[in-house]
């Protein structure tokens, strides 16, 4: 059981993005963060994953009701986002070995499902962006994360890719806390709840 509790968090860059947001996500729950461009969806996602710190407010993390230090959260997290990339000069196999030490049966199965198995020994910069997105999904899921942070997970994916992604998300849902920032209403519908950030750019 993994829980994220956020109390009254605010963040500003040169302008105020959002203020006083509170929410709580636990294993088995999923939350979609929706809102127009510039409303701070990605930033809120990063704050909840302790990748960026908020200007005010606090976030607590619990594993089996025991509080855990914030800086360790990233070890529990799987992230799929535009600002994260696998190593471009390595092959997919080498990326998996770098992260997990070996290519397990689980990994092979997942690669088959994502239709990436036959490409696994090519260097990543030869891939199309859609294939790179599939790699990121594979790398995040193979980690068996306690919390899954998805920022526009369906971007660059074709219809079949999106279908596989949705299936995978549904399968992992009972064991993971999922937070998803998205503009796509189909993706948002996968989640139990949603946080709506309503102000757009510079508001």
């Amino acid at each position: 059981m993994f829980t994220i509790k956020a109390h009254n968090i605010s963040k500003r860059y040169s302008y105020r993005l959002f203020s006083n947001i509170s929410c709580s996500v636990s294993t088995g729950e999923s939350v979609a963060i929706v809102g127009p461009n510039g409303s701070g969806k990605s930033t809120l996602l990063k704050i909840l994953g302790n990748i960026v710190s908020p200007d005010s407010g606090r976030i607590e993390y619990f594993e089996n009701k025991e509080p855990i230090p914030a800086h360790t959260v990233i070890h529990y997290a799987g992230i799929v986002a535009p600002y994260i990339q696998c190593y471009n000069h390595l092959t997919l196999t080498e990326n998996i070995i770098f992260a997990f030490g070996s290519v397990t049966d689980d990994a092979i199965e997942l690669l088959h499902r994502l239709d990436m198995y036959q490409h696994k020994d090519k260097v990543l910069h030869t891939y199309s962006t859609g294939m790179q997105q599939r790699c990121k999904i594979a790398m995040a899921l193979l980690k068996k994360p306690k919390v899954l942070l998805l920022d526009e997970p369906g971007s660059n994916l074709d219809d079949s890719g999106r279908k596989i992604l949705f299936e995978l998300i549904k399968e992992i849902q009972p064991f993971t806390a999922i937070i998803m920032a998205t503009n796509d209403s189909r993706e948002a519908k996968l989640c139990h709840r949603s946080i709506v950030l309503d102000k757009g750019i510079g508001a």
Binding site: H75, Y83, Q85, C86, N88, F98, A99, A140, K143
Partner: peptide, 13 residues
């Protein structure tokens, strides 16, 4: 530059 810093941090300290 290649946005791998966070990817690396996801697995290692």
């Amino acid at each position: 530059e290649e946005h791998t810093a966070l990817f690396n941090l996801m697995y290692y300290s």
